[in-house]
Design a protein around this nucleic acid. Structure first.
Lengths: 321, 321
DNA sequence: ACATATATACTCGAAATGAGTATTATTGTG
DNA sequence: CACAATAATACTCATTTCGAGTATATATGT
């Protein structure tokens, strides 16, 4: 237990909110460098727990009050936490910048005012292939599948080829599993379809998909999206992202935005109502056209009452609203 | 990002196997001190990833080949990683033993030969209130609920009391949710029903429930059990713990052992078979009494083919076999 | 031959799910 | 002002899954 040189703990947070139909993440962005998630060091002297450290500096830096937070994953890969332009091998030389082990968090919040240096960006900028709400994204057929086919063909032997084929099939084959965000990102990284691959390898950057992020932050964001998409189904977490009162369609749009899928309206309503997740307020939303919708509120009691079920996404996909 | 003093990364593994009807965890045990999970430091110079570091020293120390592994959680709480007998405040004094952030892993393996200094121990030694296979454990009514009632009554105001009541109800109320292992352990810790509470607080130890472990290892084990119980239901992970060929009853017993619940035999069989998780080998097991059971094997192909579903535990609970 | 112990097959009602169709309450337009 | 358009909400229906049995088959031991 004596090795404690050159390791530091970094905390990164994927702070998520939804405005309208856009799931967004809070990023630190500067001219001339890639976007980054808010991150900071963990100071073991000042903070009793990792999470209290996180809440502290997120509060200071972004003035956001994190409601729900959840630890995602701890990443310690050598060569994947390198600022652009830095020699990726410097960490192994003993007293260089040292190794950073980063603990990623997911946080959900309602959207408030922005803070200097930070901005809300739609998460599909970083993962354009993950949004299936309107159509299957065209880049899957035009760019991704051709590259993946080549990846399978380039296998050194037939056994490797078979493993690769299965992986490609699970990630991008028939039967879209909206939760496999991380697996897909890692696959695209491996085949050189995302910019981070070239940066980490010190190679010249090629034309790639989606907007890159600093360090391994896009990987952390992929983990966050995957986790949130999964959690949606069995815990009522969407409500952390909603205003106190909302129409059922607004709720549905939020879930759709996060899941990247369209849902069946009537069944969605039935699910939410039957589970008692929500109760009418007796007020109606002002709508431009059509019959006005009732405003609902989340029945916070369900969190305790029963084993609080989630919004089981009504249906896989559906043609239209 | 300059703080890197006095933090070290420890890796701990809950290595799980099942023999017969006993879910077991590999522990390091010595006369005179509490059991511990195998753990070791993460050496950032030698290892590229946290997981490769883990596999390396687990391999060296225990000679076990970890099949499935999964990162659980990263714990960094001050005062909960203190060896028995050490002043729990020494970590905060700057250049004492320093702060250990520990990354917990879950690993599944088939049981092999034991290694000196380690031993397989049934996990219900540490969590006797979690085994509901035969009956609802008597200690819940005799020891746990009385203490929890007092905990609710001792609340300083009625709002706190209400929150406590809800927590108690979710953890030990009607409708046992076998996945809430960690929540229950944390609650018992808080009310002083587990030994670690007294040790961490530097108080004299009272009569408590279950076998204690060193550091925060029982918490890590609780996390592992919770995760595994959850995962069982949607990924076919049980098979990592089974011999290459097994009868359906053996499979059911393994799932029951892990979940701490009895399942409905006929429905369990239907679920497993209908999902194509398993195929007959045409061989039959030698049984002492009764009609011989066919031996089955796991159809590894399902892992790729479809989005591999898990063994959805047939039923909540059942009177008898 | 039959009691006992298992394994395996089949049945049946209740609930959940997927996919609609039908009805109601608004606004905008000819 | 009637009516097209738009959206909310209600209701229907076939299919699947689930929980809980009963029924039958194949062993062993006496």
């Amino acid at each position: 237990m004596s090795i404690r040189d050159n390791v530091s703990i970094g905390l990164s947070a994927a702070i998520v909110s939804v405005k309208g139909e856009r799931p967004s993440v809070l990023v630190v962005s500067h001219e001339g460098s890639d976007d980054a998630l808010p991150f900071g060091p963990f100071d073991p002297v000042r903070h009793r727990t990792l999470e209290s450290g996180l809440r502290k500096w997120v509060g200071e830096q972004t003035r956001f009050d994190l409601g729900y937070t959840e630890q995602l994953y701890t990443f310690g890969d050598k060569g994947r936490h390198t600022p652009a332009g830095t020699d990726r091998h410097s960490a192994s030389s003993g007293d260089g910048p040292g190794r950073v082990v980063s603990v990623g968090y997911l946080a959900l919040t309602r959207q408030g005012k922005e803070v200097p240096e930070t901005q809300w960006r739609g998460w599909y900028h970083y993962f354009p292939w993950e949004d299936w709400r309107d159509t299957r994204p065209a880049m899957i057929d035009s760019a991704i599948l051709p590259a993946l086919k080549k990846f399978v063909k380039d296998a050194t032997n037939s056994e490797v080829a078979e493993l690769r084929r299965e992986r490609v099939n699970v990630c991008f084959g028939e039967g879209w599993d909206e939760e496999r965000v991380l697996e897909r990102y890692e696959l695209l990284y491996e085949v050189g379809l995302v910019e981070e691959f070239y940066r980490d390898a010190g190679k010249p950057v090629k034309q790639t998909l989606g907007t890159p992020m600093q360090f391994d932050h896009r990987r952390i964001l992929a983990t966050a999206i995957a986790r949130l998409r999964g959690k949606l189904k069995y815990r009522p977490v969407v409500f952390e992202l909603m205003a106190p009162a909302f129409t059922l369609l607004e709720l549905q749009r939020a879930v759709e935005a996060l899941a990247g899928l369209r849902l069946h309206k009537q069944n969605f309503r039935r699910l939410v109502a039957d589970q008692g997740l929500v109760e009418g307020t007796g007020k109606w939303a002002a709508t431009a056209r059509g019959r006005p919708a009732e405003l609902f509120r989340f029945r916070r009691e369900v969190l305790r009452e029963r084993q609080a079920p989630g919004v089981r996404l009504g249906v896989r996909r559906v043609k239209n609203t």
